[in-house]
Design a protein around this nucleic acid. Structure first.
Lengths: 191, 191
DNA sequence: CTAAAAAAGCGTAACAGCTCAACTTTATGA
DNA sequence: TCATAAAGTTGAGCTGTTACGCTTTTTTAG
């Protein structure tokens, strides 16, 4: 990696750092894009060249590929698990691991949970994996890649953590959601 | 209804009309808010007093209460239908009815389908009913109003039409989604 | 009937996020 | 070494949105 790309990465990093610092200090909505650019000693135009998706993208610097993990959870699941069960296990796992990963990570999560715009953005980023996950599920079930049932399952599985977060007992809620996907709604016909 | 409210409704209507006309003529992103206000012979400030939720709200003037219909579909469903089946039927029904309702309605739908910002907004409006629907489901099943399973079912049922739209055969897709919610994912344990 | 409260509307000015065009610097690589 | 491409800068400008202070109209009460 040449000096050029190193410098570029450095600027990008300093932008993301400044943004995260200022946001956690004073709140997302009370920090303007101009100020972030100033703090990173960079022009606003440059900021938007590094983060073309806008202000929200500044917070989500590290785009780890959870997509691979999702697909793997379906493809290489143990023989005694259904697809929903495998996804359930995998989502439980990554969640707990992340909590204890980084010192600044708690601030990061709290910031996202607090700010509606960031919640929405995070949700959108997360749901981008729907296509890949649906394809993996379809392949597993021997159906067409754009089969509506597979797309629905993928979508619902990805929304499960979003729904579970915010419940009193998130783990139990997540289990309930995946139980629904696994066995269907247990209601009787007469209410 | 006094003269005051009549005039208010009139300006609101002329704003919505102008917006829909201009949007369908030249596209959502190519029509500014100032221009809409001009076309309705009204100041920009007034426009935002009528539509505080912003530009997108101009398109969704008629906020018919589908919420009541959703709740009723659960509460007063025939004895031989499960909750997902009842919701499925109700969503099929309203969909087909709406298509043939109004002459300008096709433009309206096409505009929404074409414009990402409007799709997002419509989705958000639609998902506002999640709470009420979840409460109805919980009541029906004898569970707590904030039960995660009920919330999940409500959420998934509301997202079903969003998912089905865009498939080759929307009706078939909708049926598939509700079948998933009714009976669970039919996959085997060994992929 | 008239005074006053309430509400609709107006115009200006401003701020936010974001983009564009033209220009300068700096590293790359042929 | 020198042309080129990429990073960065500057500065103006557009769009949605809001605040402020003001006028006009409608309603309501005394």
């Amino acid at each position: 990696m040449g000096r050029r790309e190193r410098k570029k990465a450095a600027t990008r990093q300093s932008l993301a750092d400044a943004a995260l610092r200022l946001f956690t200090e004073r709140g997302y909505d009370d920090v303007g894009v101009r100020e972030i650019a100033d703090a990173a000693d960079v022009s606003v135009t440059t900021l938007f060249k590094h983060f073309p998706d806008g202000k929200e993208a500044l917070v989500f610097d590290q785009d780890v590929d959870r997509e691979a993990a999702l697909v793997a959870a379906v493809r290489e699941r143990p023989a005694d698990l259904t697809v929903p069960q495998a996804l359930h296990r995998m989502l439980l796992g990554t969640h707990s691991r992340q909590v204890h990963a980084d010192p600044r990570f708690d601030d990061f999560l709290r910031l996202i949970d607090t700010t509606p715009a960031l919640r929405e953005y995070a949700r959108r980023m997360w749901l981008r994996h729907e296509h890949a996950l649906a394809a993996a599920i379809a392949d597993d079930a021997g159906l067409a890649a754009d089969d509506p049932g597979c797309r629905a399952l993928a979508h619902f599985a990805l929304e499960a953590p979003v729904l579970a977060r915010g419940a009193q007992d998130p783990d139990a809620a997540l289990a309930r959601v995946f139980d629904l996907l696994d066995h269907g709604w247990p209601g009787t016909r007469t209410g």
